[in-house]
Design a protein around this nucleic acid. Sequence first.
DNA 1: GCCTGGCACTCGCGTGGACCGAGTGCCAGC
DNA 2: GCTGGCACTCGGTCCACGCGAGTGCCAGGC
Lengths: 340, 340
Amino acid sequence: MAHDDRRLRVLRAIVQDYVSTNDPVGSKALAARYDLGVSPATIRNDMAVLEEEGYITQPHTSAGRVPTDKGYRFFVDRLSAIKPLSAAERKAIEKFLDGAVDLHDVLGRSVRLLAQLTRQVAVVQYPTLARSAVRHLELVPLSTSRLLMVLITDTGRVEQRVVEVPVDTEAETVAELRTLLNTAFTGAKLGEASDKVGDLVDNSAPHLRPLVAAVSATMLETLVEPSEDRLVIGGTANLAQGSALDFPGTFRPLLEALEEQVVVLRLMAEVGPSTVTVSIGEENEHEALTAASFVSVGYGSGDQALGGLGVVGPTRMDYAGNIAAVRAVARYVGHLLAES
Amino acid sequence: MAHDDRRLRVLRAIVQDYVSTNDPVGSKALAARYDLGVSPATIRNDMAVLEEEGYITQPHTSAGRVPTDKGYRFFVDRLSAIKPLSAAERKAIEKFLDGAVDLHDVLGRSVRLLAQLTRQVAVVQYPTLARSAVRHLELVPLSTSRLLMVLITDTGRVEQRVVEVPVDTEAETVAELRTLLNTAFTGAKLGEASDKVGDLVDNSAPHLRPLVAAVSATMLETLVEPSEDRLVIGGTANLAQGSALDFPGTFRPLLEALEEQVVVLRLMAEVGPSTVTVSIGEENEHEALTAASFVSVGYGSGDQALGGLGVVGPTRMDYAGNIAAVRAVARYVGHLLAES
DNA sequence: GCCTGGCACTCGCGTGGACCGAGTGCCAGC
DNA sequence: GCTGGCACTCGGTCCACGCGAGTGCCAGGC
């Protein structure tokens, strides 16, 4: 119908205008700026309907309209065309991420890049250990009863733990152990390694058994929370921008929630690769995020995401732009990790 | 003289009062709350002198006095007795830091602890690589022409780099190389390792020379900025508390400077172990920090600091408490790193 | 000589009322 | 079904005012 169609255009215009100006938008301003082909009075009628249906609301009687969470949701689902990044932006991404020396560096650069592109807070998760494969497992004797286990994965994560071994060990024994463990685990996904441990212990030489058990146990421990999950956060300064406007009274809780990491990690747990997830305002369960939106996507070359990344900002954000940026950075990070 | 002495007590009272109330403090309030033994009128005279000398100032004519940077400086240098932490606080520190599984965990816990104790932003520097000793150097072949070098230090830092080797290598050669490098470098301070490289290359078997050179070069590269320096930051939510009051207009730049890390690292470069450094307001060169104070100290068991840690907050902070907290946490971190 | 109480003065801040303008809903007409 | 007109609402801004905290100065007392 012509009417419905126009109403959608009105909603889109309201969202766009409000996102860029941060002022409640009135019928007159809309008519002036968006060339909708109808008069302010008609727009007013449409706005009344949109308000009735819950897509927009008035902060107070004599003010313009502001999109509700439902309005943003509708906008994101139906109205926004993904705007491709400009050539300059693509180039910037490449330039920014090239020359990273290790995983830490890759993720650090990504988070800064993403924060800069979107002018929001960016979060990047380290590759999940469970979905990473063992590249090498190193044992360094600290004393006769303590070993330092260093686990190197194909995604570039390195985890280290001190293992207290139940019996005194000598250098040769350690060497044996190292060979044994590497033969068994190299190339295996860590999430599936636990299945192998039982057999491995049973089949190893008696004098090695307690050692194999101790080291394996420690290795599997690296998979459990909270050390398993790590997050890099950047661009919090962007939040400070209009904090009083966008997060009245919830600015501090929001920063706390970000630092807590748990909240963000939980949100990120659901992301799949190449499908951008957007959760808007009240859709977020955590109270501190009810005034914020979270745009996230998984990265990784395969069909399963190695980790997630995204941006957090006010519900009043440039969804189209942020979705594009998040997706582009995820793709580059996926490539970078695959080729190293 | 009795007068000078009283004036100092007045200054101290002003600082204490202002720190705890955040209100400019007047002569009457001082007389009422601090039992200085003299009348408000006398205090007014003293305050006039203190203002003359630049230790305090009036925000406007009919308001109380506020300490200047110079006033805080004097307070820190001469007037504040370090208040020892309470038994409960000591216990909390121990409890909080025990159970850390690796370096990342130790520093992460430290920064959270420090932020919690001081209610300020806490920063903790990773142990400087140059002052760490090599515990083990591992080489993992990625292909015949690329090796992954993993450098493990006695402070728990692990650095990894991909080394492009000039000639194709086989497993045996890598093993040889690994033994050679570990024999040469294990136990050596990284800062002094560069001296050894030349000799090592000359004295190694001809077929290993290019490899030794390549790996050594990469190892030394880990020492240069910026990857050499890493920082953990926590408690930024504490800044949001009274940001409008304490940092009018400089809140965003301050967050940016913290994220930038460079600024903080530069400040931290000067710290020695066990001597707490306080830099106040305008004493900080970086513009974003001119409304902030930075309390820092080095940690490490020896005479040279392995790294630094500290807190950043408004000049209006509890210096005595923060100095005590920073010192205590540094001591614990030093112990923890020494014993692992 | 130093401290003290008194006093006049200053000035920022909070309060309250008036004004203004943006925006709306409704209605009659095209 | 769209449009122009109109009366109404109501939050933000401005301004005038009074209050109160705080000061500086001075004369008197210990």
